[in-house]
Amino acid sequence: MAANLMNWLDERLGWRSVWEAIFLRKVPHVNWFYTLGSATLFLAVTQGITGILLTLYYVPDPAHAYDSVVYITTQLPMGWFIRGLHHWGASAMVILTVAHLLRVFFLGAYKYPREITWITGVFLLLIVIGFGFTGYLLPWDQKAYWATTVGTRIIGVAPGIGEWLLRVARGGSELSAVTLARFFGTHVWILPASLLTLLGVHLYLVIRIGISAVPEKDE
């Protein structure tokens, strides 16, 4: 019965070849450090789910952002859990992404033929940092406000166009409702879209070229 259904679907979807190409392909023996990339992917998915759940209640407006975050944390059943996962997941993302990068670096996996994979990986790291930076402001508490104030000020250091860039980043000269709205928009639309695109390329390359083997010392 189940087999018939699978066959029926395969005739139409061709999923077996995809399954075989992705999951049944042979990969070299690797050590536990090679799980860091997958763990990062897993975290990205988790962050996506918890993030979507948070947007159900979060309001990106200075008048209500703080209240809605407090509401999620203290009033909603399991709200503390969802937000806790998202909050700590953000830090874990950064740690795992950097760890993954270091693994790739020390084992020379960025070399031929995986240069593009590496470059997309570097961009993905920047995106992860961007997620952290934009997400940090959203609770609109003291820490968020002041961290973002000093964080955005760095942009203003750029010679010549620094002031202008700063105004673009903040949507004005000071942190305001505009800043919060654009940070929110960046956090939930621009960055996820970029992430998905680059992640698609990154994973396609990983599957196409294959996971790198642990290099031999005498090689």
């Binding site: 975290l43 975050v69 859990f81 806790g84 909050h87 406000y145």
Partner: peptide, 24 residues
């Protein structure tokens, strides 16, 4: 590994929680 990472996150969420400071 994912499970371990997830359990660490759950523990952090449960024991430390997501802090909220005073309103900005």
């Amino acid at each position: 590994v994912s499970l371990i990472v997830f359990l660490i996150l759950v523990a952090l969420a449960y024991f430390v929680g997501a802090p909220v400071e005073e309103r900005a």
